[in-house]
Amino acid sequence: MPQHNPHPVPDDPGVFVPTQVQGWQDGYDAGISSPPNVPVTPLVRDPDYADAWTEGATSGNADGRTEGWRWAYFDGAAQPDPQGVGRPYEPRDSGEYGQEHGSAFTQSWACVGELPLVVILAQFAPGERGGEGLTGRQLARACADKGVSRLYLPVSLFSSGAAQEGTGDPLTDAGYWHGTVHESLDEAAPEAIDYVTVRQIRFAALLRYAPAAEHDFFDLLPMNELLPPIRLG
């Protein structure tokens, strides 16, 4: 089982969230996506954040070794080499064969990262508070409150470069296209398929989210198992 953030979050939304909450979560995301060793703690002014980041990175590294490494796709991590041996990230069966459009999304990559979850949270639960290490737990709580077990977001699988003017949408500002959040693959798939067909783009995917406590976990289901043959970011 994945380790969890040991730093408590105040129940009162008006109370300041300790910096250690985000520090641990940021460190954990880096640790589980940076095999094989624990990543170096970044230089920051806040020692509490730095100490928590180190704790999180150690926990993430341990979980990566036991639970499997996760690809920080939208953070610009290098693409796995399809011909590589002993590569840290491996595709899995998506398990979506029962869906009408499941045959186009048979492969799944375990990923981590807050960026796309901020977009999903904004669409699925407008007004909920994300950031500060809270995005994962807020999204999981919103899914529990609405009785939803999975969410799907159509996304592009490459960055065309950051937007010249900020839009306030973190994926758009990072140069990625995305569609609308849906509660089933068959609802989301046509958007990804149309994006590829209309824009004549080869690489698109569905981002699949299932509640995972506070963690920024999601699966990336590339359309027709196609991944861009370039370094991302």
Rank of each mutant, 00 (worst) to 15 (best):
M1V: 13
R202T: 06
S59Q: 11
D169S: 06
S184C: 13
D12V: 05
N61L: 03
G166E: 14
Q164M: 10
Y89D: 02
Y176M: 07
Y73R: 07
M1F: 11
G68L: 05
Y89I: 07
R231L: 10
P2W: 15
L115A: 10
P47H: 08
Y209E: 00
R129N: 05
G130S: 03
T172V: 14
P170F: 04
A72M: 07
Y176T: 08
H7D: 04
L115P: 00
R87E: 14
S184K: 05
F124L: 00
G233F: 03
R65A: 12
S33Y: 01
S94G: 13
A210L: 10
N37P: 02
H182K: 09
T41Y: 06
D46C: 07
A104G: 07
G130T: 02
A174F: 08
L227G: 02
R141A: 10
Y176R: 01
A212L: 09
L220Q: 01
S159I: 08
V181T: 07
W71S: 05
H182P: 02
P82I: 04
E191P: 05
Y97Q: 15
P126V: 04
F16N: 11
E225M: 11
G133N: 08
G76I: 09
E183Q: 11
G166F: 08
S159D: 09
Q164T: 15
A78G: 10
R45S: 13
S33R: 03
Q79Y: 06
W24L: 07
